[in-house]
Simulated assay, not measured.
Amino acid sequence: MKSESEIGSYIEANRGELQAWGEVVVAEVCSVHSGLLKVPAAVRVKDPDSARKKQFKKQYKDPTVEMTDLVGVRFVVLTSADLLPILEAIRDSSTWTHRQTRDPDQEASADPAVFGYQSHHYELRPSAGAAWCCEVQVRTLLQHTIAELSHDAFYKASHVVPSQAMRLVARSIALMETTDELLCTAMQSARSIQAPYDAIKREAIFHAASLGGGGAELMDDLLEAYPSVFTYEGLDSFRAFVRERHFIFEKITSRSGNGIFGFPAACLVVYWIAEKQQRKVMKQWPFPASTDDLKMVLSDLGVSA
Results as ranks from 00 to 15, higher is better:
2 K>N: 12
3 S>P: 08
4 E>W: 05
6 E>F: 01
6 E>Q: 12
6 E>N: 07
7 I>Y: 01
12 E>K: 11
13 A>F: 04
15 R>P: 11
21 W>D: 03
23 E>K: 14
25 V>S: 09
28 E>Y: 11
28 E>W: 09
28 E>S: 14
32 V>Y: 05
32 V>F: 06
33 H>W: 11
34 S>N: 14
34 S>V: 08
36 L>S: 04
36 L>Q: 09
36 L>D: 10
50 S>A: 15
51 A>W: 09
52 R>M: 04
53 K>Q: 05
56 F>L: 08
58 K>I: 01
59 Q>K: 15
63 P>G: 10
65 V>M: 07
69 D>M: 07
69 D>F: 02
71 V>K: 06
74 R>G: 07
83 L>N: 10
84 L>Y: 14
85 P>L: 08
86 I>D: 06
95 T>L: 15
99 R>G: 08
99 R>W: 04
100 Q>D: 06
101 T>R: 14
108 A>D: 06
110 A>M: 11
114 V>K: 06
115 F>Y: 15
129 G>M: 04
132 W>M: 01
135 E>T: 10
136 V>P: 06
136 V>A: 08
138 V>H: 02
140 T>K: 06
145 T>Y: 04
146 I>L: 15
154 F>L: 13
154 F>G: 02
154 F>N: 09
159 H>F: 15
160 V>D: 05
162 P>N: 12
163 S>L: 12
164 Q>V: 14
165 A>M: 14
167 R>Y: 02
168 L>E: 13
170 A>D: 04
179 T>C: 13
181 E>P: 01
183 L>G: 09
184 C>F: 05
187 M>C: 04
187 M>S: 11
187 M>I: 12
188 Q>M: 12
189 S>G: 15
193 I>V: 15
201 K>P: 00
202 R>A: 14
202 R>G: 03
204 A>F: 00
208 A>W: 05
210 S>W: 02
212 G>M: 07
214 G>L: 05
215 G>F: 04
223 L>H: 01
224 E>N: 10
225 A>L: 00
229 V>F: 01
237 S>V: 09
240 A>D: 12
241 F>N: 05
242 V>M: 05
244 E>Y: 05
248 I>Q: 12
248 I>R: 14
251 K>C: 10
257 G>K: 03
258 N>L: 04
261 F>W: 14
264 P>M: 07
267 C>L: 06
267 C>N: 13
269 V>N: 02
269 V>D: 00
269 V>Q: 01
270 V>N: 13
274 A>S: 15
275 E>Y: 11
276 K>I: 11
276 K>M: 14
282 M>G: 09
284 Q>F: 10
284 Q>N: 09
286 P>T: 04
293 D>Y: 11
295 K>E: 15
297 V>S: 11
304 S>C: 12
